[in-house]
Design a protein around this nucleic acid. Structure first.
Length: 322
DNA sequence: TCACAGGGGTAGT
DNA sequence: ACTACCCCTGTG
């Protein structure tokens, strides 16, 4: 190792680029592992305990999670990593903004207070969530990695950038289908074409001049994009932290935990309730609730100790009821 | 080994 | 509101 490192340093000097000195980031109340595994992004790997590899936009990134909680990154990437991981988010203020009497949310926050909503590149986020419908995380991940490998720019060390819209447009629907997209292939392809041909621009995602409702409507005009995905993209890539994606998990949790307030509400009515109830950081509330529900429920299912009733119907399962 | 549900939604009826 | 949609994974 030592010899290799020394040789590497010498080569780096000779080349005038290469490995920079490491920088240590020391975020407070931040859980890297949970954040990268919370279903916001699907392309990071923990290749060995504490060593995370992935990409941020078109750069390959490695993050070392130290035992003391510090994050070790190349000094040249310090700023990009801090921004991507939203290390600047005011967590005390965010959590303090939640409704004080909301016991379910308090529990969800306590379950994983270090969860962070990261800042994703717009197209990568949109495209990934178009492929996510009616799928499990492992499958989304597989598709995402396949698309990168097939159509993305190679970044070395087994990493590829997410393919630009032009690349997916040029690839064609059939090639996308071969990456396992199924019926989503024409949807992703059409959207890629619209953006590649500049019939549609994503510039409005974080434009404060464009109100949230209009931003949602504009996104929903894209093939394969409905309200859930629109909210995901605005939350994860547009920095609109009032957005609250309602999917089957969240809907189930909401109808159980806020039963009296959501009784008889349609999906649409549910969206209006959450907007009023959770406030300006509603998106964070959603992430805390969703993350808690997902992991707690998974744990309940992964206990297949014979004898008892083998099947637990989803309908009756109450992920948060201890 | 092999069926067979069912999955973080959307679009069309 | 209700249903089909392609493909993969987990389960028995």
């Amino acid at each position: 190792m030592g010899g290799r490192t020394m040789a590497g340093r010498m080569m780096d000097r000779a080349a005038g680029c290469g490995r920079e000195p490491a920088a240590i980031l020391r975020p407070r109340q931040f859980d890297l592992r949970a954040t990268l595994n919370s279903g916001q992004v699907f392309h990071w790997s923990e290749v060995e305990p504490g060593r995370f590899t992935g990409t941020i936009g078109s750069r390959r990134v490695e993050i070392l999670l130290r035992d003391d909680g510090g994050l070790e990154v190349d000094a040249s990437q310090q700023e990009a990593v801090s921004r991507y991981l939203s290390l600047d988010h005011p967590m005390d203020e965010i959590i303090g903004s939640f409704p004080p009497g909301d016991e379910a949310l308090r529990q969800a926050v306590a379950f994983c207070p270090g969860l962070r909503i990261i800042r994703q590149p717009a197209w990568e986020c949109l495209a990934t969530f178009i492929t996510s419908s009616l799928k499990q995380v492992s499958h989304i991940r597989q598709i995402s990695l396949l698309l990168r490998r097939e159509f993305g720019r190679p970044l070395g060390a087994g990493q590829w950038a997410y393919p630009v819209p032009e690349a997916l447009a040029a690839a064609g629907e059939e090639a996308l289908r071969r990456c396992g997209l199924g019926y989503r292939a024409p949807l992703l392809w059409s959207t890629a074409c619209l953006i590649a041909r500049e019939k549609f621009s994503l510039g409005f995602l974080d434009d404060p001049e464009v109100p949230q409702g209009e931003a949602v409507a504009r996104l929903c005009a894209l093939p394969g994009v409905g309200p859930k995905i629109a909210h995901c993209v605005l939350l994860f890539a547009g920095g609109r932290h009032g957005c609250f994606p309602v999917d089957v998990w969240v809907e189930r949790v909401m109808r159980e935990l806020y039963a009296s307030q959501t009784a008889g509400l349609s999906r649409r009515g549910l969206e209006e309730f959450v907007a009023g109830h959770f406030g300006p950081w509603a998106g964070y509330a959603q992430q805390f609730l969703f993350h808690h529900a997902r992991l707690t429920f998974r744990r309940a299912v992964e206990r297949p100790t014979g004898s008892g009733p083998v099947r637990t119907r989803r309908r009756g399962a109450s992920p948060l009821n201890q």
